[in-house]
C-alpha cells in the first residue's frame, strides 16, 4: 500500500490556504495525492489531485475561511492509502473585507470585468491610455479610467517601457494608524510577472515581486467561473502614516520589470 503522508501543514493567506506534506514519492511511485477538504464545516469533498507535495487552495475570497484537509495517496497501480490525519487551516481576512474603505477602484470580486478595456482589449491601451492611468477617486470611473491590464517593460504591445498607474484620493483627517493598500489581481504573466514598486506621495514604500499567474488575464476576466485557469493573487501592505498628508494623497504603482498584471480591484483601507 502507498504510504500515508506525514506532517500535513496548512498556512493561511489572503484568499487561500497553502498546504504542504511529506511522503515517499517513488517507491511505490505516487500517481497523485487526492486532497479532500471540508470548508466551513460542510461535507468533505475531493478538492484536487496533484503529484506535488504542496497544494495551494486558492479562490477562497477575501473573507476568512476555515478548511479541514485530509490526503489520500494513490500509487501507480491505483492502490489508495488510508487518509492522512486531518489538519485545519484558516485563510487571512483581507483588509478589503475587514477594513473601512478610504478609496477603491473596482470591486473586490475576482473579476476584472468592471475595469476599462476588460476583459481582452489590451491592444487599445497605447491609444486609450497614452499617458498611463491617472485616476482620481470620486472623479473618475473604473469602467473608463482604470485599465484592467497594467503593462510592463517586457510587453512590446505597450512600447516595452515601464508604466505607472496613479491613484489620487483625499484624506481628512489623516487616520490615526497606518492605512493599508490592497491590490487584488485576477492574473499575472506565467513566466515573467515582474515586480511593482509602490509609492506614496513620492516616497517609495516597497517593491513587491508578483506571483506567477497563468497568462490568461489579458484575455479573460472572470476568475470565479468553474474551470477557470486564471491565477488570482493579492498584494496587501501598510502605507506609512508619516508619509500621508491631510487633503490629496497619491499612490503610485510602477512596473519597472516584467510583463503585465491584470487587476481585480485596488483600494486604501483603515484596519478595524
Amino acid at each position: 500500500m502507498p504510504d500515508v503522508v506525514r506532517r500535513l501543514r496548512a498556512t493561511g493567506e489572503v484568499g487561500r490556504i497553502r498546504l504542504s506534506w511529506e511522503g515517499e514519492a517513488y517507491h511505490p511511485l505516487v500517481d497523485h495525492y487526492a486532497v479532500y477538504a471540508s470548508i466551513d464545516g460542510a461535507d468533505e469533498t475531493l478538492l484536487a489531485k496533484t503529484v506535488y507535495a504542496t497544494f495551494v487552495h486558492s479562490g477562497l475570497g477575501g473573507r476568512a475561511r476555515t478548511v479541514r484537509y485530509r490526503i489520500v495517496t494513490v500509487d501507480a497501480a491505483g492502490r489508495r492509502s488510508r487518509p492522512s490525519s486531518s489538519v485545519t487551516g484558516t485563510s487571512v481576512e483581507s483588509v478589503a473585507v475587514s477594513g473601512l474603505a478610504l478609496a477603491t477602484v473596482g470591486t473586490f470580486d475576482h473579476k476584472s470585468l468592471e475595469l476599462a478595456l476588460a476583459p481582452n482589449g489590451y491592444a487599445q491601451f497605447p491609444t486609450r491610455f497614452p499617458n498611463d492611468v491617472d485616476f482620481t477617486y470620486g472623479v473618475h470611473a473604473p469602467g473608463t479610467d482604470w485599465a484592467y491590464l497594467h503593462p510592463g517593460p517586457a510587453d512590446a504591445w505597450a512600447g516595452r517601457k515601464a508604466h505607472r498607474f496613479t491613484l489620487h484620493f483625499d484624506l481628512s483627517p489623516v487616520p490615526p494608524a497606518d492605512p493599508w493598500l490592497a491590490i487584488w489581481l485576477i492574473d499575472t504573466h506565467a513566466t515573467n510577472p515582474g515586480t511593482v514598486t509602490i509609492g506614496l506621495n513620492g516616497t517609495p514604500v516597497r517593491d513587491v515581486a508578483l506571483e506567477k499567474g497563468a497568462t490568461r488575464g489579458s484575455l479573460e476576466g472572470d476568475a470565479t467561473l468553474p474551470g477557470t485557469t486564471l491565477k488570482p493573487s493579492y498584494v496587501e501592505l501598510a502605507l506609512p502614516r508619516a508619509a500621508l498628508a491631510a487633503g490629496e494623497n497619491t499612490v503610485t504603482i510602477d512596473k519597472p520589470a516584467g510583463s503585465w498584471h491584470a487587476y481585480d480591484a485596488i483600494g486604501v483601507f483603515t484596519r478595524p
Binding site: A25, L29, V30, H32, V51, Y52, A53, A190, T191, K212
Partner: peptide
C-alpha cells in the same frame, strides 16, 4: 519555467 519548486517538479518528471 512555471516556478514549480525542483522538489515538486521532480515528482512530476517521475510520473
Amino acid at each position: 519555467e512555471t516556478g514549480i519548486t525542483p522538489a515538486d517538479f521532480l515528482r512530476r518528471r517521475a510520473v
